[in-house]
Amino acid sequence: MATTALVDPETGLTQAQLAARHGLRVAGERPSLTEYSRRLWAYRHFTAAYANAKLVASYSNAKLGQIWQVLTPLTNAAVYYLIFGVVLGQNNIPNFIAYLTTGLFIFNFTQSAVLAGTQSISGNLGLIRALHFPRACLPLAATLTQFQQLLASMIVLVGIVLVTGEPLTLAWLMLPPALLLQAAFNAGVVMVVARMGSKASDLKQVMPFILRTWMYGSGVLYSVKLFDRLPEWASTLIQFNPILVYIELARYALLEQAPLLNESLTQLWLVAAGWAILGGIAGYVYFWRGEQEYGRG
């Protein structure tokens, strides 16, 4: 075919040139970060509705239904108290049952959010392949579902703390901001594992081990004073463990005499806020960079 100066749109132009000439966009192109955030905000109702739906659906087969939201943490607390409080007899911590449940519920928020997050892309491929929405809705909804669960367990926790004789003080006001910072940190981690889990479905198998190690490094089941026996560097490292920091903040807020690893309250808040900002933003950007990949299976 002879090349001519005047090109015929059907033969002279390549497909890409034709598309560019008419201002067509690449299908499913990844939007800029600001545009992505704008779309995500526009889909906030979907995120909330999806989170809520997941919460309702998770108990829909149980006869007691939504009551399990409160019963599950309560049963958990009872089991751990039986083993660590009664059988092993931890007596060196004042008000051990409240100490234990605080750590347990705070840790469980991150744990269950991360476990749900690993599956939030790979478990929703049908939805992803059928409909358009910013995929970050899914990990965020997973975090939100677990946050709602956390609120239910906080009611249980407040009950336990009050029944075991802790006074209601002004320090309790520290609890809500601490939980919000933890939620921001969790959202970041959930977005990271959601992207990783979308590629390697093996992550699901490995995650329980990582989380259990994390739990032992967060002083959930025993006194954090035990970490002082570690070498200097290791104990410093553990002081910056985000979950430990969030647990310490909650214990600081609710309990009068709980042993704490971090003596400085300012440092606790700074580390807590630092992890929330760093984790939240880094996780979001990391997730956004993979936006085009989700759905390939």
């Binding site: 659906a57 392949r129 059928a130 358009h132």
Partner: peptide, 27 residues
């Protein structure tokens, strides 16, 4: 529809195409 990424080549569209299917996974 932009729901499955291409491995090679490209798909250009005007606006946002919508897939009307019966595959939308619901809860």
């Amino acid at each position: 529809a932009g729901l499955l990424p291409v491995n090679r080549g490209a798909v250009y569209t005007q606006g946002q195409p919508s897939l009307l299917g019966v595959n939308a996974a619901l809860l």
